[in-house]
């Protein structure tokens, strides 16, 4: 499969990928390497993984990172309750210590968390490690073995290798710099805000019922809004919400109904400072220019 074919497949599944992204994805699939996607919030980083999983009919395993995420929540944990129960039950059955111990640290008593789960799949799953920049730096170190060797070492049990090599996609919003060790194990793509043509294509794919004229207006409006220097620049996800809101409000032309347009702005402006920075007059001016 060429990268063009992949791009076309993604487009047919409703995801419009830029050339750089499609190429990075194609190489990640061909070489079996993890792919690190960076970009602002709402430009469709997570959506890539979801679409890819749908396209390949693969299972999507998602690990949402957060501050304080540790190995026990991300990789594996021993099932202490079951182990204790087993000890008691076997003690009553009169088994000796050594025999019990040999049984206790087996895969049976291992609770698989997302990363181990992903390695245990028979069919290659899509493993999405979302917002890796939120996790602590120590956690990145846990990932290194998984990302380069696709295996996990459990001290009591030995090394568990992947049954099928998962397709790994990491996303980052860039709230902190990731370590070089992690970066060099991954292919890299920066996902930018979509340009005019791409955003029109996204709208057409996700809201086919939208009038072409209104779609053009929405895209022009949002593209102009992005240049306003907002605190939280609206991404493609916000554009889709905005379009859905306008459809729901029955708007056919942006300049028709100022009140409805103002109401739909809740989908685009997400902070108080941004709401104040874009008063109704500015909204009207931008809408007038986009029309």
């Amino acid at each position: 499969m060429t990268w063009k074919a992949l791009q076309a497949d993604l487009a047919s599944a409703g995801y419009v990928a830029a050339d750089d992204l499609a190429m990075a994805l194609h190489l990640a699939l061909s070489l079996g390497r993890p792919l690190l996607l960076e970009g602002a919030a709402g430009v469709g980083k997570t959506e890539v993984a979801r679409t890819l999983a749908g396209l390949r009919a693969a299972r999507l395993i998602r690990l949402q990172c957060y501050e304080g995420l540790d190995a026990a929540h991300a990789i594996y944990e021993w099932n202490y309750q079951r182990q204790l129960l087993a000890i008691r039950a076997r003690a009553e059955a009169g088994e000796t210590g050594a025999a019990v111990e040999a049984q206790l640290f087996s895969e049976e008593y291992l609770l698989a968390r997302p990363l181990l789960e992903a390695l245990r799949q028979a069919e290659p799953p899509v493993l999405l490690i979302d917002e890796i920049d939120r996790a602590d730096e120590e956690f990145e170190a846990y990932l290194l073995e998984i990302l380069s060797e696709f295996q996990i070492t459990v001290p009591e049990l030995g090394t568990i290798a992947a049954r099928a090599r998962p397709i790994v996609i990491l996303t980052s919003n860039g709230t902190r710099d990731l370590s070089d060790a992690l970066r060099r194990r991954c292919l890299y793509a920066w996902v930018d805000y979509p340009d005019r043509a791409a955003e029109l294509a996204i709208l057409a794919a996700r809201h086919p019922e939208l009038e072409p004229q209104l779609a053009a207006q929405i895209v022009g409006f949002v593209q102009a809004l992005r240049k306003e220097g907002l605190e939280k620049t609206p991404g493609a996800a916000e554009t889709l919400d905005f379009a859905a809101a306008l459809i729901g409000l029955g708007v056919n032309d942006l300049t028709d109904d100022p009140a409805a347009l103002e109401a739909a702005m809740v989908a685009l402006l997400k902070t108080r400072a941004d709401r104040e920075a874009v008063p109704p007059e500015v909204v009207q001016r931008l809408a007038g220019r986009a029309a």
Partner: peptide
Amino acid sequence: KALCCGSR
């Protein structure tokens, strides 16, 4: 580009 770059 995808293979050699590591940051924006």
